[in-house]
């Protein structure tokens, strides 16, 4: 087997296995790979992060596919992408099995209670961070207020919020009403 394929697999398996906390937790690993292997440059990685926001899928998966594809084509892309989610598959399968067994155990239940509250807090912190780093300006803030306000009356499909906001972004940008 080609050495590059093996390395791609090993490196992205490593990312999948050791990045805790998801999303941007994969970043240090990905920058590290850029330094060591030159499959992509740090600049390309920074670009990729922007791209990952407008393409489907988690950042880590997007970067894995990109690195694999640019270095060794479609097979490389397949290998790197598989490698980055394989640890998840193995770990979740084991943990889910154990949880099924000990679901009624009181200690396990209280541990899950703690984890759930912390999970909610982490999601909240992501929202707050995005709120302050997104450069919403006045119009964006109004739009967000409208979305959230109307959601109390009737919650729409996620596709609705994403679609409408994309169209509004496009329209406002066209008329030069946002600062990006």
């Amino acid at each position: 087997m080609n050495n590059l394929y093996l390395q791609l697999f090993a490196q992205f398996f490593h990312v999948g296995l050791f990045s805790f906390g998801g999303g941007y937790a994969t970043l240090p690993f990905l920058y590290d790979i850029a330094d060591k292997f030159h499959w992509y440059s740090s600049k390309q990685l920074t670009d990729m992060l922007a791209v990952a926001s407008i393409t489907p899928g988690p950042v880590g998966v997007n970067v894995a596919t990109f690195a694999g594809f640019t270095t060794s084509g479609i097979l490389g892309a397949l290998l790197a992408t598989t490698a980055v989610v394989l640890p998840s598959f193995i770990i979740v399968s084991i943990v889910a099995r154990v949880l099924d067994k000990f679901k009624t155990n009181k200690t396990v239940q209280s541990a899950i209670r703690g984890i759930k509250a912390a999970g909610c807090a982490l999601l909240t912190s992501v929202g707050i961070k995005l709120l302050f780093t997104s450069n919403l300006h006045l119009l964006g803030t109004i739009l967000l207020g409208l979305f959230i306000g109307t959601s109390f009356i009737k919650k729409q499909d996620p596709l609705f919020y994403l679609g409408i906001s994309a169209v509004i972004g496009l329209a406002l940008g066209y008329f030069n009403l946002i600062g990006v």
Binding site: A50, S53, I54, L123, V126, G127, L130, L131, S134, N135, L136, G140, L143, L144, F147, I148, S151, K155, P158, Y161, L162, G163, I164, S165, A166, V167, I168, G169, L170, L172, G173, Y174, I178, V180
Partner: peptide, 17 residues
């Protein structure tokens, strides 16, 4: 960039929900 800016608002809305 403009679409990205807009989608960001949708994403924050979804996160809030």
């Amino acid at each position: 960039q403009h679409i990205f800016w807009g989608v960001g608002i949708g994403v924050i809305t979804l996160l809030f929900l």
